[in-house]
């Protein structure tokens, strides 16, 4: 058994553990719904709405008030400290999966005798590893376990898909890839992607939460998925999404610059609107738009969240469709 087949074994083990983590997180969301229902029994609807309507005139202020009342209400309602056990199980499994994933990554690197990110299979492996790493790391500072289903689910699909569809044997690097910039440029791009992924998941929840808040305000009988009541207000979700997106944006800007420096050495020009360059640029502009939208009256809130979602869709498109089907100089998928 050589390093590479050991690496594959580790990767599949990681996928399996992530899948288990995904299930745990899914149970967690279901459980949260129950908690939210219990909370309603303790904190009557009347009070919820009362708090909301009594708020100040600024509409977002009111909505935030409503969200947080429900949120803290839920907390008070369930009371017990061992709530969201499933989320903790999910996170523990994620960390375990991460260790196998990391082992798979390192083994692949040893098998290849270089950094393991130079073809589609390896990009996927490294990119998803960083998504999980960033997810685990930020959970040290903020409790973002409610994003677990999203993040781990995304990783299961991407990593499992890559191991199935993109796997290639270790081959020596093509000359243009023999560069320090491979190490830096690709790594930072993957890191940026990881932050964009978190921002994306938060933006999706933000949209759902905003809908729910509107319904709570309108005293609608149904307010959508109940687990949302245990999540932060849409405004807070938006703030978090924005912060991750800005970190991602800085990494992405660096990726663009580093890529240009590399292109100038490898291809004889720093910029040539090669398909991959073009899409990297499009993504950059989209996120610049998102950051602007957050500061533009009438665009903050749900509209800007859509931009974050579109931005991440472009990231995924760039990684999959552009790599596989678009003609260009970046022919490094390793697939023919």
């Amino acid at each position: 058994m050589n390093f590479d087949s050991l690496s594959i074994l580790m990767i599949w083990t990681a996928v399996a553990i992530y899948a288990a983590a995904f299930i745990a997180y899914a149970f967690d969301l279901a459980k949260r719904s129950q908690v939210a229902v219990d909370a309603k029994v303790v904190v009557p609807e009347r009070e919820l709405v009362g708090a909301a309507v009594g708020g100040s005139a600024a509409s977002s202020g009111r909505v935030a008030g409503a969200g947080s009342k429900a949120e803290t209400g839920a907390a008070a309602g369930a009371g017990a400290p061992k709530r969201f056990v499933m989320a903790r199980i999910g996170t523990s499994l994620t960390v375990l999966g991460f260790l196998f994933h990391l082992a798979g990554e390192v083994l692949r690197g040893i098998a290849a005798g270089r950094v393991p990110w130079s073809n589609m299979y390896e990009f996927s492996m490294t990119g998803t590893l960083l998504i999980i790493a960033v997810y685990i790391a930020v959970n040290i500072w903020f409790d973002l376990k409610y994003l677990g289903t999203f993040i781990v689910g995304l990783v299961v699909v991407l990593l499992g898909g890559a191991a199935t569809g993109f796997y290639v044997e270790v081959v020596p690097l093509a000359d243009p890839l023999k560069s320090v910039w491979l190490v830096i440029h690709v790594f930072v791009a993957s890191l940026g992607t990881a932050f964009f992924a978190l921002a994306f998941a938060l933006s999706v929840f933000q949209l759902m939460q905003a809908r729910r808040e509107a319904k709570v305000l309108a005293e609608a009988p149904k307010t959508g998925p109940r687990f949302l009541a245990t999540l932060p207000s849409s405004e807070r979700l938006e703030g978090l999404a924005y912060r991750f997106a800005t970190v991602g944006f800085i990494f992405w800007t660096f990726t663009l610059i580093a890529g240009s420096i590399w292109a100038n050495d490898a291809w004889g020009r720093y910029w040539g609107f090669d398909t991959k360059e073009t899409w990297t640029f499009i993504i950059w502009v989209l996120y610049a738009g998102y950051i602007h939208a957050r500061a533009t009256r009438g665009w903050r809130g749900s509209r800007s969240a859509w931009l974050s979602i579109v931005g991440f869709a472009a990231v995924l498109f760039n990684f999959t469709i552009v790599n596989l089907f678009f003609k260009g100089l970046h022919v490094y998928s390793g697939l023919s």
């Binding site: 949260r32 708090a51 009594g54 708020g55 100040s56 202020g61 935030a64 008030g65 947080s68 009342k69 949120e71 803290t72 209400g73 839920a74 907390a75 008070a76 400290p81 709530r83 969201f84 903020f142 409790d143 973002l144 376990k145 409610y146 245990t230 999540l231 932060p232 207000s233 807070r236 978090l240």
Partner: peptide
């Protein structure tokens, strides 16, 4: 940010009326 508008008008009333949340969905 979430203590609610009424709490804010009067600093003396700024004490949160709800017990400190534990490891819930809070992000704070």
């Amino acid at each position: 940010t979430e203590t609610g508008p009424d709490a804010e008008a009067d600093p003396e009333a700024a004490t949160p009326d709800i017990s400190e949340p534990d490891d819930s969905g809070r992000t704070d």
